[in-house]
Amino acid sequence: MSSPPYARSACASLDGLVMGDAFGDSWFTLSGENVEEQWAARRLRPTPWRWTDDSAMAFVLFAHLAARGEVVPGVLAREFAAEYARDPGRKYGASMHEVLGRIGAGEQWRAVTTEQFGGQGSYGNGAAMRVAPLGAWFRDAPKEAAAQARLSAQATHAHPEAAAGAVAVAVATALAAAGAGRDAPLRAEFLEEVAGYVPGSDVGSGLRVAASLPADTPVRRAASVLGSGWRISAPDTVPFALWAAAGHPDDLPEALWQTVGGWGDRDTTCAIAGGVVAARTGTGAVPADWLAAREAIAVWSGWTPEPTAPQTLPRQIM
């Protein structure tokens, strides 16, 4: 029996996310290295390419969906904390060390997340970086993808901007997956459509600015206008990553080359772009040497190259 479309799309998106994460992280360099020259020459970085917290949390979210078919924030928070405790050396951000450590120690997840940053909650890019496979999971229902992405953000990020970033990435991935096999929309049209699902926020405003950039805008210019994750926030990460993905919807390797050229939080921007584009294209065009360089996907996540139907189907969309 063949797999349902959402399973194939979600597995492809996870594959692309991990590829982007590991590829992007390889471009964090030592002082004095001329990465601009290496990037311009399309010269790959030394191997192996290890994935980071972007992928570690995406594995947890993917396994959670496979088991439940929907997001249960409190359960997901504890699952994130358990994986963090098992392997904390995956470049988690400072606030996540605290959040996941406290949840793992038994504190109530919602109290922990809402206490961050003086009671505002974190508006970092962590909820957005891991969510692309969820969008592919709900590829035929972008409104449901948005709702589930918002729930997934709550597990670690209480700030509305973090949720808006997760919604934007999930919807972009759902739309990309649903459009597989058809002509891709123009970049501006795609970004405007995604922005229509994002609640009033800096993330949504950033998407509309991204949509307004001229078609021939160089990647450095886009990064200077939109931000490329230097602040590690959702508003300063998601619009650029989706701008980069929307510019190369049928070419995953080129999408990653362009995304990393914005520098910034390059593992996360590439994870987002990779997850979105791969949901549409798959990863068949990824060069063999890239795949050989990348650390393997965690088998416990339930990911398979040729996915079979998960035990639990997505719940009915009413």
Results as ranks from 00 to 15, higher is better:
R150M: 12
R150I: 08
L151W: 03
L151H: 02
S152T: 05
S152D: 09
S152Q: 10
A153Q: 15
Q154H: 14
Q154K: 08
Q154W: 15
T156S: 15
H157I: 07
H159W: 10
A162M: 14
A162L: 11
A162F: 11
A163H: 14
A164D: 05
A164P: 02
A164T: 00
A166V: 13
V167K: 01
V167P: 01
A168N: 00
A168P: 09
A168C: 14
V169K: 02
V169M: 02
V169W: 01
A170Y: 03
A170T: 00
V171E: 02
V171C: 03
V171R: 01
A172S: 12
T173R: 09
A174R: 05
A176V: 13
A176Q: 10
A177C: 13
A177G: 08
A177V: 08
A177R: 00
A178D: 13
A178L: 09
G179H: 14
A180F: 01
G181Y: 07
D183E: 15
D183F: 00
D183M: 09
A184T: 12
A184I: 14
P185R: 00
E189M: 09
L191A: 13
L191F: 13
E192Q: 11
E193V: 03
E193G: 01
A195E: 03
G196V: 08
G196W: 11
Y197E: 01
V198R: 03
P199Y: 03
P199E: 14
P199G: 13
G200I: 04
S201V: 13
D202K: 07
V203I: 14
V203G: 08
S205L: 13
L207G: 02
L207C: 06
R208L: 07
R208E: 03
V209Q: 08
A210F: 03
A210R: 02
